[in-house]
């Protein structure tokens, strides 16, 4: 006896107890459980199990790793439903999957398959170049990429329960992720500094293309209202620790693990570096576990033909 209320909330009963699914607290709460952890991109059951054994907080299923999407060109879509189901049946940690920006039906399919979180991702080819999915309609929580505070808050206002920096996926180059988190931090500090000046606050909100209310809330919190991860180009334990030190709540590692030639050890080292990021000695120990010769080959941002981070609606 399930009843859909609104905003993706579903009311149901367990015996006489009334349960409510898909509330804001339950969706954002899921993201909170991922904090201080590493979420790893995988393309197969085998990779998923390696990630679980290495201490991944969750895994992200996609058809090709971002580095291979870049190489293959063409249209990149969500992963095969059968592979996602196979992975869901074989790991105990949360399973996320990517859908195309604006592709409401790829997202609905992922919800039916039962993934724990949906990533509306610029790594795939956008299906709607002018708008993102209206994420409030889903019971399953969403994560979205952002390059600055405005983008992060616009996605939050559309219902995202988690934000990640866009970085530049599949490059093994952390520079863009660093640029994005630093910009977001600086913009947040600015908002907090004008918290009592409504005139300035509404002007800034308009510049960011967000509502006054969410600008005010962010100013008060001094951070995003939802969990904020780093993503895009993270390839080494010290990349991961560096981003944690900039105030990220956790990290996504995409191509960095399975495009290296030491995935098991590297996954393990990343997890250690994220848990103990404040302690350079332990990060050094993690860094000693991996060899630079085995890291994924990197790409200079300035040489790229395709900038994935520029995908998605500008409003």
């Amino acid at each position: 006896m399930e009843k859909i209320i609104n905003y993706g909330r579903v009311q149901t009963f367990l015996g006489k107890s009334q349960l409510t699914r898909g509330t804001v607290r339950v969706k954002r709460g899921f993201a909170k459980m991922c904090k201080h952890g590493v979420i790893m991109d995988v393309t197969s059951v085998e990779q998923a199990q390696i990630a679980e054994d290495a201490g991944a907080t969750a895994i992200m299923v996609l058809d090709k790793l971002p580095a291979d999407v870049r190489r293959a060109g063409g249209v990149a879509r969500t992963a095969s439903a059968t592979i996602i189901e196979d992975i869901l049946d074989n790991v105990t940690i949360p399973v996320m999957a990517k859908c195309r920006i604006g592709h409401t039906y790829e997202a609905k399919v992922l919800e039916v398959l039962g993934v724990d979180m949906i990533d509306e991702s610029e790594v795939l080819t956008p299906a709607d170049e002018e708008r993102h999915i209206w994420k409030w309609d889903f019971t399953t929580p969403f994560v979205n990429g952002a390059r600055d505070l405005g983008e992060a808050l616009r996605r939050t206002e559309e219902g995202a329960a988690m934000i990640r920096t866009k970085g530049e996926p599949g490059t093994g180059n952390v520079a863009e992720a660093v640029r994005h988190i630093k910009k977001l931090n600086n913009q947040t500090r600015w908002l907090t500094s004008i918290i009592d000046e409504d005139q300035e606050l509404i002007k800034t909100a308009r510049k960011l293309k967000v509502s006054y209310d969410i600008a005010k809330e962010t100013a008060k919190l001094g951070r995003l209202p939802v969990v904020n991860f780093a993503a895009g180009g993270i390839a080494t334990p010290s990349d991961a620790a560096f981003l944690m030190s900039l105030g990220c709540d956790g990290v996504f590692v995409g191509s960095g693990i399975y495009k290296s030639s030491d995935p098991e050890i590297r996954a393990n080292a990343m997890v250690l570096a994220v848990s103990y990021w404040e302690d350079p000695e332990i990060v050094a120990e993690a860094q000693k576990m991996v060899l630079e010769t085995k890291a994924m080959p990197g790409l200079d941002i300035h040489d790229l033909e395709l900038k994935m981070q520029e995908r998605g609606s500008k409003i």
Binding site: Q18, L19, R21, G29, F30, P94, D116, T140
Partner: peptide, 9 residues
């Protein structure tokens, strides 16, 4: 899974 997560009294 997460879809079945809930709050209750």
């Amino acid at each position: 899974r997460q879809r079945e997560s809930f709050e209750t009294d």
